[in-house]
């Protein structure tokens, strides 16, 4: 049994309300989670959910109003020096001097730590070797993000906190960054990943918590969360002509009444959506085959973390629904 690398229990953080007499805002109301060594742990939620405040408490940048934070067995508020030495942080909006080069930044940040990563290796890992002598202001968004990650890793941290690291990147750069985060984890660093992108969390995280309104609303592995969704699987069918489509509606409506594995069949746009248990696809295909109605296209409806969010919060997931609390 190993102790968790990061342990947050019942964390609470309140900011004074904006404007005179405004009610204080609960940025984090009740957040608990544990991060095990060597995993990529996700903190997922819409902007303003309290993700950044949570990790800033973990990094020791903010003092919690309630609850407990333990990182590598220590309270960041009582042992700040230890946390700064062993936790690498990549902040959401942090930048460097415009005119500092990639190599200089790595060199100077490395000099702050007692154990420093080999800069040549780090530049190679982050695909920055060719940009070593380039000034910060002249880097692309993706290159800046990669440098920011490199600076978070230069002190050979045990834990790396990466906050919204693919925001503003193009799809190719995002995918490259995901691969990079996996390589970082594979090198033995525990990664605490903050993101408002559902697909990013689903693709990268070993485990995650979903935060909404300052509270944890769901937690677990992405696949377990999706497995745990109520309601069933869905199948969507497309037909070449209206005749076939009309016959299919009849066949499938009858199927839904007859077969316990099929809940409902209903037109969805120019398609037909059939929902039911895990066996719904078999049932649909058999029924259509028996009636000799041939669909043009059959696809299963993909279920994602977004559906998990909708289920636990009862509303649509909109990443930008709230402004992040400024303090």
């Amino acid at each position: 049994m190993t102790s968790p690398v990061v342990e947050v229990s019942h964390l609470r953080k309140t900011y004074p309300g904006a404007g005179r007499g405004a009610a204080p805002k609960n940025a984090v109301a009740d957040v608990s989670f544990q991060v095990a060594r060597g995993e990529i742990f996700g903190i997922l939620g819409p902007n303003g959910a309290g993700k950044t405040t949570t990790v800033e408490c973990v990094a020791g940048l903010r003092v919690p109003d309630g609850g407990a934070v333990r990182v590598l067995g220590h309270d960041p508020q009582t042992d700040p020096a230890l946390i700064r030495e062993h936790v690498g942080v990549q902040l959401q909006e942090a930048a460097l001097h415009d005119k500092i080069t990639v190599g200089e930044a790595l060199d100077v940040f490395g000099s702050f730590y007692s154990r420093r990563a080999d800069p040549v290796e780090l530049l190679d890992l982050l695909d920055l070797t060719a940009h070593r002598d380039q000034q910060f202001a002249k880097l692309s968004g993706g290159q800046k993000q990669r440098l920011s990650i490199a600076l978070a890793l230069v002190g050979r941290p045990q834990v790396a906190i990466l906050d919204e690291l693919t925001t503003g990147l193009d799809p190719a750069a995002r995918r490259a960054t995901w691969a990079l985060v996996e390589r970082v984890r594979d090198s033995g660093v525990t990664v605490l990943l903050v993101t408002h992108f559902m697909d990013e969390a689903e693709r990268l995280c070993d485990r995650l918590v979903v935060i909404d309104g300052g509270r944890v609303v769901a937690g677990g592995t992405p696949s377990a969360l999706i497995e745990g969704l109520e309601g069933g699987r869905g199948v969507r069918l497309r037909f070449a002509d209206d005749g076939a489509r009309a016959r299919a509606v009849d066949v499938l409506t009858a199927l839904a009444e007859r077969d316990d594995d099929v809940t409902a069949a209903a037109p969805a746009g120019d398609e037909i959506e059939v929902t039911g248990t895990r066996k719904v696809l078999f049932a649909v295909v058999q029924a259509l085959a028996a009636a000799d109605v041939v669909p043009d296209d059959v696809r299963t409806v993909e279920r994602t973390l977004e559906d998990v969010f909708v289920q636990v919060t009862g509303r649509e997931y909109r990443a930008e629904e709230n402004e992040e609390v400024a303090a």
């Binding site: 060594r37 067995g73 020096a81 100077v108 000099s111």
Partner: peptide
């Protein structure tokens, strides 16, 4: 699994200050 607290706290406080000063001057 737990990192011990450093014995001489504050000792490493100025580690890298020379490098920081030189780099800041250069920039």
């Amino acid at each position: 699994r737990v990192v011990p607290a450093p014995a001489g706290r504050g000792r490493g406080r100025t580690r890298g200050f020379g490098k920081l000063l030189a780099t800041e001057l250069k920039v």
